[in-house]
Amino acid sequence: MSIKLQKFLMAGSWALCTVWGISAARAGTFPDHAIHLVVPFAPGGGADTSARMVAEPWTKVLGQAVVVENRPGAGGTIGAGFVAHAAADGYTLLYTTPGQQMTAPYLFKNLGYDPFKSLISVGKLLVGANVLVVTNALPVRTVRELIDYAKAHPGKLGFASSGVGSTSHLAGELFKQEAGIDIFHVAYRGTGPALNDLMGGQVPMTIDTLSVYLPYIKSGKVRALGVSTKSRSDAAPDIPTIAETLPGFEAYPINYITAPAGTPPAVIEKLNKTLNQVIHDPQVRAKFYKGTTLEGSTPREMDELVGSEQKKWKALIEKADIKIQ
């Protein structure tokens, strides 16, 4: 080996060690000031509430404040764009729901950020359950009876959602495709208005948030046919899964934390470790809504889940020709 080559390799190794040393030093002191957890929706919604329920115990574990910051708009993509372009130092994180990476790439033409490369996973936080509910006037009591009724009355049943491209919309479209039935979409501006019209009989069915509908199910104001998770919910174990009739059916919101791409691995590791510590705290778990399951993961596991969900929803959105202008 020539002397010049030896010097070059030594210089390269020194530079690499220096970079690693800086990264390790930063991770060792991280965090030394407040972390901003950006919620890409308005205050008071499910994501905002969950973020605040996690921020408080996460603050205690990290030793620095985790400050929830709301940046709503465009289905959550404005907040996602803000985080995607923030400094990659671990101090700006995104409370991520399915829209920002799993579905928005196929619903919007111009996002203002790269949903595949601009954000990296810190870890999974929770999964929610949706429930298929119908009005009491609809003469069905099981998922099979609903499918048979829809096939006998093609084009007559509408399903409500909280908006175009929402989890409830896509769940309804998935049910339509997998059941092979002809039902049509009725979009509302949120779950609340959809719930009101469902109970009023203006729309006969929906697949939406279990925690919201559970009180009305228990009071008998609406009828539950099945939950959208792969297994029954602890919040309502007597409600079967839709998958018991349509094998493999799954459609539920996944909430997780992401950071700007380029955030040092050691910082991501620390954020992931402390997040999982919070998630597995019995006191934290007890505070969450019925129908919500706290689930941790490694960053790699979450990245893999994002990838599989992207493939799933891309195929459905293209087949149903769903677009947001």
Score class of each variant (00 low, 15 high):
Gly220Asn: 09
Tyr149Val: 03
Gln202Glu: 14
Phe108Thr: 03
Leu125Arg: 14
Gly158Glu: 11
Val227Pro: 10
Gln177Ala: 14
Val186Ser: 13
Ile120Pro: 06
Val164Gln: 11
Ala187Lys: 14
Met205Ala: 10
Gln202Ala: 15
Val164Tyr: 08
Phe184His: 11
Ser121Lys: 09
Leu170Tyr: 09
Thr206Asn: 08
Lys221Gln: 12
Glu244Cys: 00
Val212Leu: 07
Ala179Lys: 09
Ala152Ile: 05
Val140Ile: 02
Ile120Met: 10
Ser233Pro: 04
Gly192Ser: 13
Gly112Ala: 07
Pro215Asp: 03
Val133Tyr: 09
Thr103Ser: 13
Ile181Ala: 02
Pro237Met: 00
Glu178Cys: 06
Gly128Pro: 08
Val131Asn: 09
Met102Gln: 15
Tyr216Ile: 00
Tyr188Met: 11
Asp208Asn: 13
Gln101Met: 15
Tyr113Asn: 08
Gly99Asn: 13
Leu195Gly: 05
Lys218Asn: 02
Pro193Arg: 01
Asn196Ser: 08
Val222Phe: 00
Pro237Leu: 08
Arg189Tyr: 11
Gly226Pro: 04
Phe108Val: 06
Ala152Gln: 12
Ser161His: 15
Asn110Met: 01
Pro115Gln: 03
Arg223Ile: 00
Ser228Gly: 12
Ala137Asp: 15
Glu178Trp: 15
Gly180Trp: 03
Lys221Ile: 00
Lys230Asp: 12
Asp114Asn: 14
Ile217Arg: 06
Gly220Phe: 06
Leu119Asp: 01
Ala152Asp: 05
Glu145Ser: 11
Thr229Ala: 05
Asn196Ala: 11
Tyr213Glu: 10
Ile207Gly: 02
Val122Leu: 13
Pro215Ile: 14
Lys117Asn: 14
Ala152His: 01
Asp238Ser: 14
Gly112Asp: 00
His169Ile: 07
Ala171Pro: 12
Leu111Ile: 04
Val140His: 07
Pro115Tyr: 02
Thr229Met: 06
Leu146Phe: 13
Lys117Cys: 12
Leu195Ile: 13
His185Gln: 12
Leu170Trp: 06
Pro139Glu: 01
His169Ala: 13
Arg144Ser: 14
Leu170Ser: 08
Val131Leu: 12
Gly163Thr: 05
Gly99Asp: 11
Gly172Val: 04
Leu210Asn: 11
Ala243Glu: 03
Tyr113Cys: 05
Ala224Tyr: 04
His153Cys: 03
Ala104His: 08
Gly128Gln: 13
Glu173Asp: 10
Leu125Asn: 09
Ala236Glu: 01
Gly226Phe: 01
Glu244Asn: 07
Val227Asp: 05
Asp182Phe: 02
Leu119Cys: 05
Gly201Ser: 07
Val227Phe: 02
Glu145Val: 07
Asn136Ala: 06
Thr209Cys: 12
Lys117Trp: 08
Pro154Trp: 02
Ser161Gly: 08
Leu126Ile: 14
Leu174Gly: 00
His153Asp: 04
Pro105Glu: 00
Gln101Ser: 09
Leu210Arg: 09
Gly99Gln: 13
Ile239Met: 08
Arg189Ser: 15
Ser211Arg: 15
Gln202Asn: 12
Thr103Pro: 05
Leu126Pro: 14
Val133Lys: 10
Leu157Asp: 01
